[in-house]
Simulated scan of single mutants.
Amino acid sequence: MAFEPPPRLVNALGEVRDDGASAWLDRVGTLLDEAAARRDVTVQRVHVPGGRSSLVAHVRRADGSPAILKLAPERFRPEAERAALTHWDGFGSVRLLDPGVNDGALLLERLHPEVSVRTLPEAKALLEAAGTLRRLWADPPEGRNCETVPERTGRQAVAMRATVESFPDVAPLIDAAIGTRDELVSSPPELRLLHGTFRQSKVLSGERLPWLAVGPDPVVGETAFDLARLVRDRVEDLIGSPSGPAITRRRVKKLAESLEVDQDRLRGWTLFRAVESGARALRVGRHQDGENLLEFAGWL
């Protein structure tokens, strides 16, 4: 299939400065054709604008039923996603349709990518997203194929410290975030299989169930880590509101109570993940995103 990869994907992979990802992008058209032939599906179109870490194509299976074929570079751990989706087996998540295939591609049930929880009013969106997330928190599978929270955040902490060389003003926030992380990983209250990158836009409308989660970057750890990313959803709106700090505090309290998560641990992981994302945005030149995230982190 001859096509140009979506600009959003091209730009995002350019930020990661990874030779493997660049080589994957050069071959992605061929990889898509090969993955489709292996599964006996017909590619209809590539979804645009698509994601920042994968190519998503609308396909038809041999029996005419619709599906999604998703491809991602190795650095984004597509086989870890496969393992998590296999473990969830459609309970709260999109269903995997090609179990047993391991080629960096995933055949998934087709949802409605244009209708995410984010299209709902904010209060309703948070409620539906939180309910979906709760269903994903399962005991980790045997022989799990994903990182732990200490492993992932340890790597991130190293990169955060390196950010200080170019952006010394962020040193106090980075020190606070890493110190909080060190305390949190020393005594996790439970170990669950987590989505890893959960937010409102990762919950799509489906036929089988009203809302299903997509796009996990699974990790094993405590549930507060998974919930933390949801606290800062629609961060641009929070930054633009004079009530942003108060709204954020209410979100932490409401989400912690509704999902029975320790409020202080949720606040701590929200701080770490916001600072980590903000520092990463600064490093790749997305300065406005970085400044918004660090301002948000300062409210915590």
Rank of each mutant, 00 (worst) to 15 (best):
V115R: 11
G143W: 00
A159C: 05
G143M: 00
W137E: 00
F167W: 12
L126E: 06
P141R: 05
L212H: 03
R161E: 12
T148I: 02
V164W: 11
V101E: 15
D182F: 01
A129N: 14
A157S: 05
T153I: 07
V149E: 02
G206K: 10
L126W: 12
L106K: 06
T148V: 01
A138Q: 02
T163C: 15
N102E: 15
L120N: 04
G196P: 00
L120Q: 09
L191C: 06
H195M: 04
H195V: 00
D182E: 06
P210H: 11
A213V: 11
W137H: 14
E207F: 13
P140M: 06
P140I: 02
T119C: 15
L191E: 10
P210S: 10
P216R: 03
R135L: 08
V220M: 03
G143K: 00
E109G: 14
A129D: 13
E142G: 05
R181V: 10
P188G: 03
C146P: 01
G154R: 03
N102F: 15
V219W: 01
L136R: 01
P141Q: 11
R134A: 06
M160V: 13
L107C: 08
A123Y: 15
A123F: 14
T163D: 15
T163R: 04
G215D: 15
N145Y: 07
L136I: 00
V149C: 07
V117C: 05
D182I: 03
I174N: 04
N145I: 01
E165G: 13
V185C: 05
M160S: 10
V115F: 09
E190V: 05
A177R: 04
A157P: 02
V170P: 12
P172I: 10
E165T: 12
T119H: 12
T197F: 08
G131D: 13
V214H: 11
T197D: 10
V164I: 11
V220L: 02
P168R: 04
V170Q: 04
S205K: 09
T180G: 02
